[in-house]
């Protein structure tokens, strides 16, 4: 089977997804990627050149709401599940 996706692409995707894999995992994943994707490429057989790009499955449209304020959560409730907090803030890791 010819390779659809190289190890480098899998590495890049893993970086985009922030899922860092060990060397063995990358090897295994590259193999699986190729198996699964070549199955997915079955879609190549479908001629879609005249099929409009329909972004939605639902026939609904024009669903909006009015600009009216409703109650927010109470702050203790909002922060209750935070793994780390400081005062009334959620505490996240440093950025750099």
């Amino acid at each position: 089977m010819s390779e659809l996706i190289s190890r480098d692409v899998v590495l890049h995707v893993a970086w985009l997804a922030r899922l860092f894999l060990t060397d063995e995992q990358i090897e295994a994943m590259t193999k699986q990627f190729n198996e699964i994707l070549s199955y997915f490429r079955k879609l190549d057989r479908v001629d879609t050149s005249n099929v409009p790009l329909e972004l939605y499955v639902t026939p609904l449209k024009d669903i909006t709401r009015e600009d009216i304020v409703e109650a927010s959560l109470n702050p203790d409730e909002a922060l209750k599940n935070a793994p780390k907090r400081e005062g009334k803030y959620f505490k996240a890791p440093k950025m750099m």
Binding site: V10, L16, A17, M29, F33, V46, T48, P52, L53
Partner: peptide, 23 residues
């Protein structure tokens, strides 16, 4: 997550995600 990330990646989105929408 990895396969889904891949299917949306620039360069592949046409062959995968958009194609799937058409199908």
């Amino acid at each position: 997550i990895l396969l889904g990330t891949f299917a949306l990646t620039a360069g592949y989105i046409d062959q995968y995600y958009l194609k799937a929408l058409q199908v």
